[in-house]
Design a protein around this nucleic acid. Structure first.
Length: 405
RNA sequence: GUGGGUGUAGCUCAGUCGGUUAGAGCAUCAGAUUGUGGUUCUGAGGGUCGUGGGUUCGAGACCCAUCACCCACCCCA
């Protein structure tokens, strides 16, 4: 038997209902905030991710589905969504056009990781990117939008917030941090030694306990922000307070993608295992120029759909449409014609095999139909169809000429 | 990439110390005096015990390999 590849799942009927419910809910909210759908390719040039996500990140360093195509191009399946949207933004010269451009997207992402709960090799993200707004109000908008989406889906969360600083304060902080790390000597773990040279900020969220105990006294990003970053961060907190959105400052919150600066945030759930981040994002004002565009301020977030799936509280399923069947093999043609009429306005499911009335009623329950419509010997002679409303428990005999006429 | 766990019916799982024809519940289908559901009762169908080797008179069970899934590390949505 041929099986799907490791970490790559089919989404079948029941699950897809949730999946679709999520998409319509999230899309509706994104549109309400003034965002437009954008679809970008699953396959992109590898260089795009190397330059945006960053070669020091694990995503690019060891998790990409990368290969050479038949035209000798170095390509890979997208491991995340932002890079492709920024590429499209620059390629279509929207950076030169100026103004504000707001996009949302959803689709599969690919990372070659060891699968576990909440972590797949092919997984789905819903994301939003905003270009052209430097104001921290847009950062707040992102967070409010996620809060709206999660609320609509009945999902509880914790919001973690941090500021990563910008090109004015980050480099100085980085130096400070590196010298602090060096002062720890060789007490730190091997990973941190590596991080010190590749991306020192990441030592902050090292899971190693001895490292963490040493880093308690590490200089904090948040104490080293320049005036502008400090101002923005204070404003952001103020806005969230005004909107009654609870947050916790996490000075160790470091996003795993290199392009972030200033605002960084992460929504986590305590009910889905160790892969607890359900949404994450932040500001990435420098990324557009890294990808050869005109410097443009930008913010965005992405939401992991699979991680939300089991948390979504679905509205109760309503009985809908018709189940149609026959008691008499002679009647199937009439049933099919009736079904065709039904489908002009609602759902119509047909059982082809003649069965007992009891079996048909059970069948109607199974497909969650509102009505059970049956043609048997009696109906056939009267040229009519028997219809039972399964909720009101009323039944009637309707002439076929009047049925959905 | 590292560590641990689990693979038996469509699903959830029993299966004793290695011993005859591999079980249950749910689900499916059919019946319970003749055309009334989301109750009950009865019955039926459904299995290469993940796969491949090995040990043994005998393997679902023990050993090795392999694949998949699960959990954690790591990483991140």
């Amino acid at each position: 038997m041929i099986q799907s590849l490791r970490g790559m799942n089919d989404i079948l009927a029941d699950d897809y209902e949730r999946f679709e419910y999520f998409l319509t809910t999230a899309s509706t909210i994104a549109k309400r905030y003034g965002f437009h759908y954008i679809e970008t390719p699953l396959l992109e040039e590898t260089a795009l991710f190397k330059r945006s996500v960053g070669e020091s990140s694990d995503i690019v360093g060891k998790e990409m589905y990368q290969f050479t195509d038949k035209g000798e191009n170095d390509v890979c399946l997208r491991p995340e969504g932002t890079a492709g949207v920024v590429r499209a933004f620059v390629q279509h010269k929207l950076d030169k056009k100026g103004g504000i451009h707001r996009f949302y997207y959803h689709g599969p992402m690919f990372r070659y990781e060891r699968p576990q709960k909440g972590r797949l090799r092919e997984f789905h993200q819903f994301g939003v990117e905003s270009f052209g707004v430097a104001s921290v109000y847009e950062d707040a908008l992102m967070i409010m939008m996620i809060a709206d989406i999660l609320k609509a889906l009945g999902i509880g969360y914790r919001l973690k917030l941090n500021s990563l600083g910008d090109q004015h304060c980050m480099p100085a902080y980085r130096e400070k941090l590196v010298s602090f790390i060096e002062s720890c000597g060789d007490a730190i773990c091997g990973d941190c030694v590596r991080r010190k040279s590749t991306n020192p900020i990441r030592v902050l969220d090292c899971k190693n306990e001895t490292c963490q105990s040493l880093y308690v006294n590490a200089p904090k990003l948040i104490d080293n922000l320049c005036g502008e970053c400090q101002n923005d961060f204070d404003t952001l907190k103020q806005i969230l307070d005004n909107h009654a959105i609870a947050y916790e400052i996490d000075t160790n919150l470091v996003r795993g993608l290199d392009y972030y600066s200033k605002t960084a945030f992460e929504f986590v759930s305590d009910n889905i295992g160790s892969q607890s981040a359900i949404a994450g994002g932040g500001r990435y004002d420098r990324l557009i120029e890294f990808l050869d565009g005109k410097p443009t301020p930008a913010v965005g977030f992405a939401l992991g759909i699979e991680r939300l799936m089991e948390l979504i509280v679905m509205p109760e399923a309503q009985r809908e449409g018709y189940y149609l069947g026959t008691l008499d093999p002679e009647a199937i043609q009439s049933v099919l014609l009736a079904a065709e009429k039904v489908r002009r306005s609602t759902k119509g499911v047909v059982e082809y095999e003649p069965r007992s009335l009891k079996a048909h009623l059970k069948g109607a329950d199974r497909v969650n139909a509102r009505y059970c419509a049956v043609i048997g010997e009696n109906e056939l002679t009267q040229n009519s169809i028997w219809v039972k409303d399964l909720v009101e428990k009323t039944e009637s005999l309707i002439p076929l000429s009047d049925f959905f006429a």
